[in-house]
Design a protein around this nucleic acid. Structure first.
Lengths: 334, 334
DNA sequence: CTGAAAGCGCTTACAG
DNA sequence: CTGAAAGCGCTTACAG
C-alpha cells in the first residue's frame, strides 16, 4: 500500500517538509507562513488525499493519542455503557481507544496492562479485578497515567472514580421500607471486591433495628449465580417470609425475578424487589423493575477528565484525584 | 517517563543495537548469535525491565499490530459478544483492537474509517451502516484489508461474513408451523439493510400458501421501536388473530413479550413467539423464549480468518472471500 | 517567511 | 558471529 507522505507533498510544491508539516498541523499562522503558500499546500494535500502517518507522528511526538480501556467484560451492559461513553468522549478529544477484557482474570489483566504499556498508550482506564495492585502501581509510578474506575484499591494512592455503593445500598433499603416493607432480604455475590462489600455493609446498616435476621442476607457463589440465586430467593420467601428483596447486581435481579414469577406469590404485591444497577429490560418488563441506577456517563466523564488532567500534567500539580459518584433511585413498579 | 531503550541495553552489554534487537526478537538463533551472548542480553533486558517501544517498531516494520473493529453499538449484546470474541482472537494473534461505534450514523462511520486508516491499523472489521461503500472501497483498494461482517454490500466485491438471514427467517416460521401454529405474524424494522430485507423475504416465502395476509407483516419505525412494536403486537393478536409471532430482532421480541404479558392472552399457549437473535434474558424468562441463535463465535472467527488471510496476503492470491454462516434454532418454551 | 538537519526507537540488508 | 548505517515518516529547535 503506497501512501502519500509529507515528502511527496513537499516535492510537489517545491517546499521543505518543515513548512508542509507546519501548515498541515495548523501551525502555519503561528510560524507566519505566507497565506498563499499555506493555501497551496493545503490544496495539494487535499488533492493527493494526504493522510499523515500517525505512527510516525506518534514516534516523533512521544504521544500515541490512544487510551486503553480495560473492563471485566464488555457484554455486561453496565461496562458496555461506560465503554461507549468513554469511546465517544475520547474521540472528541482526539484519542482512540484500545479495548481489553479481563473476564475477572488477574493474569489476563496483567498481560493487557503490559501490552498496552508497550503500545505506548497515553493513559489507562481500568475497572480492575482488584488483584493487580503491584502492576498498576508500577505502571503508574513509571509515569503512565492510570485511572481506576468502578473498582478501586482503597489502600493505594491512585486516582479513581467509583460509585458510592454504601449509600446506594441504603437508598434501596430505604425505598423498600418507605413503600411499607417490613422484612427485607438481600441476595449478593461472594466476590472479593470493595464495591461488593460496601453494598453489603450498606444493606446491613440500613436494615438495623428492623426485623434484622442474618438469614435474610444471602451470599451466592458467583460461579453458580443463576441456580444459587434462585435457591436464595426461594428460601427468603418461603423460610424467611420476606416481603422485599434487594439484589446486589442487575443479573441477580434478573434471575430472582424469573424465580419469583414461577412461585405462587403475589409479585410485586406481596414481595417487592429492587435491583442495584439498572438493566435495559427493567423498563420493558411488566411490572417495570425498580432499580438503583449507576450514573455511567458521570463515571465515564470523570474518568476521562481525571486521565486528561494527568496526561496534561504540569509537574508540581500532583492531584490526589478521586471522585465518588452518587447513584440514584429509579422507582418503577416493583 | 523515561523508559529503557534498545540502546541502553546495547551499551550495558557492550554490543550493537543490531545484535540486541535480533536476540530480543527471538531471531538470535536464526542469526547464529552466540548462545552466551543471547543469554546475557536476555538477562539484562529482564533486569532492566525492557519493554520495546511498539510505536518505533511499528514505524520500522510498517505494521501496527492493531486491528480496528467498527460496530453500530457495543451495548447491543449481539455486537458485544462478537466484539469480545474478536478481541480474544486478535490478542492471541498478537493484535490489539481499536474500537469504534457508529450508532448507525454514516458520517461517524466515515470519520472512524479515516481515523483508523491514519492510525495505520493493519486491518478493519466492520459491521457497516451500509451507507459508506465509497469510503470502504477506497480504503480497501488502497490495500488496507477490510472484512465486512454482519452487514455487507451485496453489489460490491468485498470480503464479508454474514448470517443466512433468509434461511433463518424460514427456520423460525417452520418451527412455529411445526408446533401447530396456523396464523403467523411478523414484526420487523424499517431499516434499509440487506439483512433486514432478507429476513422479511424469508418470512414471506416460508409463510406462502398458509393463511397469508399482508397485514400479518408489521414493519415498525426503528426510531419508535418500543411503542410501535407494542402496537403491532396488539393489532396482530386482536385484529389479525395470530397464534404465533416472529420478531425480527431480539429487542423487538423483548418489547413484544412485555406487551403480550399485559394482554389477556394465554402465552405461550394461545400466542407463541420466536425471536430472530438470542438475548441473555431469554433463558432467564419463564417461559424461556425460543430464538434463532446467531453463531457469534463463528462470525468472529471467520472474520478474523478472512482478515488475516488478506494481511498475510501473498500477491497473486486474490481470494474472493466470503462466508455465509448458518443460524440455528434454540427451541425453548414459547 | 522558510529550510537543513537531528531525532524519535526501532529493524534489517549488507558487509565482514 | 557481530556491527555500521540507512531507513520508517513524521516534528521541531535552531538558524538565517
Amino acid at each position: 500500500m503506497k501512501r502519500v507522505s509529507l515528502d511527496m507533498i513537499a516535492k510537489e510544491v517545491n517546499l521543505s517538509k518543515t513548512t508542509v508539516s507546519m501548515v498541515l498541523n495548523g501551525k502555519g499562522d503561528l510560524h507566519k507562513i505566507n497565506p498563499d503558500t499555506q493555501a497551496l499546500i493545503l490544496s495539494v494535500a487535499k488533492r493527493l488525499k494526504f493522510r499523515p502517518n500517525m505512527i510516525a507522528r506518534n514516534l516523533s511526538t512521544g504521544s500515541s493519542k490512544t487510551l486503553a480501556l480495560i473492563v471485566p467484560r464488555i457484554i455486561d451492559t453496565y461496562y458496555g455503557l461506560i465503554a461507549e461513553s468513554i469511546e465517544q468522549l475520547s474521540l472528541k478529544l482526539g484519542y482512540q481507544v484500545l479495548l481489553g477484557t479481563t473476564h475477572e482474570d488477574p493474569v489476563k489483566e496483567k498481560e493487557l496492562l503490559l501490552t498496552f504499556e508497550a503500545q505506548q498508550v497515553d493513559g489507562i482506564l481500568i475497572a480492575s479485578t482488584q488483584h493487580n495492585l503491584e502492576d498498576i502501581k508500577t505502571i503508574s509510578d513509571a509515569g503512565l497515567p492510570v485511572v481506576l474506575f468502578d473498582r478501586h484499591y482503597p489502600e493505594a494512592d491512585l486516582p479513581y472514580v467509583v460509585v458510592d455503593n454504601y449509600l446506594g445500598a441504603q437508598k434501596l433499603v430505604k425505598h423498600l421500607i418507605e413503600s411499607g416493607r417490613k422484612n427485607i432480604g438481600y441476595v449478593g455475590l461472594n466476590l472479593d471486591l470493595t464495591a461488593i462489600k460496601d453494598r453489603q455493609r450498606g444493606f446491613e446498616n440500613a436494615i438495623e433495628g428492623r426485623a434484622k435476621d442474618s438469614n435474610n442476607l444471602k451470599i451466592v457463589d458467583h460461579q453458580h449465580a443463576k441456580s444459587d440465586c434462585r435457591k436464595a430467593v426461594e428460601e427468603l420467601i418461603l423460610n424467611q417470609g420476606v416481603d422485599g428483596i434487594v439484589f446486589e447486581t442487575h443479573y441477580l435481579a434478573l434471575y430472582g425475578i424469573a424465580k419469583i414469577r414461577e412461585m405462587e406469590v403475589d409479585y410485586p404485591g406481596a414481595v417487592s424487589i429492587a435491583s442495584f444497577g439498572d438493566h435495559e429490560v427493567f423498563s420493558i418488563f411488566r411490572p417495570e423493575v425498580t432499580a438503583l441506577v449507576l450514573p455511567v456517563e458521570q463515571i465515564a466523564q470523570n474518568s476521562i477528565d481525571m486521565l486528561m488532567r494527568q496526561i496534561e500534567n504540569k509537574p508540581g500539580d500532583d492531584p490526589h484525584l478521586n471522585k465518588i459518584v452518587e447513584p440514584s433511585m429509579k422507582v418503577r413498579n416493583t
